[in-house]
């Protein structure tokens, strides 16, 4: 170690003193997610409003954690819920069992189930961690605890992330993109 190296090292640290911290102050500022992030599942719809899910249970078969339960029912031809013969009357994912591996997304023949961005799902009761259709359809914003808080405080759901990219398979899902750091 030479005097020169010691002096140079002081210069290096001084340079970092005046640079911006790399810390993301997470709950205060949103996290920028990575393109392959696996978050809470989203059940997407066709552009005409019909659900993509046809209740085939292939996702449940593919699921390594046995986290998915699907109960199909016949579509009413006059007033169909999904674009196929059948639809998912009950579609539940146990978020405590789910390992967010994305195999359900790969198994789905219609691209109905897609892993989205939400990750703030910590909750107090086991039963609240079982997400039904009403918690996962595209138009739902936020996770169960987030929506509960929003309902109590009267404020809008504040997502803890921004996405600096667009995933086309998340058709119709509006994710915050502004203000995120790459």
């Amino acid at each position: 170690m030479t005097l020169k190296a010691l002096a140079q090292s002081l210069g290096i640290t001084l340079k970092y003193l005046f640079s911006k911290p790399v810390t993301v102050p997470y709950p205060d500022a949103p996290v920028a997610l990575k393109p392959r992030f696996h978050g809470r599942h989203v059940l997407t719809r066709h552009p005409n409003g019909l659900e993509k899910c046809i209740g085939c249970s292939l996702c449940a078969a593919a699921c390594p954690a046995y986290a998915i339960y699907v109960e199909p029912a016949e579509n009413d031809p006059e007033n169909p819920v999904s674009a196929g013969e059948r639809y998912a009357k009950v579609y539940e994912i146990n978020m405590l069992r789910c390992i967010f591996c994305g195999l359900c997304e790969e198994a789905c023949p219609t691209g109905a189930i897609v892993l989205g961005y939400d990750f703030e799902m910590a909750d107090y009761q086991y039963s609240d961690l079982i997400y039904g259709k009403e918690d996962m359809l595209v138009d739902v914003v936020g996770t169960k605890p987030q929506r509960r808080e929003a309902k109590m405080t009267g404020k809008a759901v504040k997502p803890g992330y921004v996405v600096p990219y667009v995933r086309p398979e998340l058709e119709g899902f509006k994710a915050p993109t502004e203000g995120g750091k790459k």
Partner: peptide, 8 residues
């Protein structure tokens, strides 16, 4: 010290 280590 935190700022020297680009933390907050």
């Amino acid at each position: 010290l935190a700022r020297f280590q680009i933390r907050m």
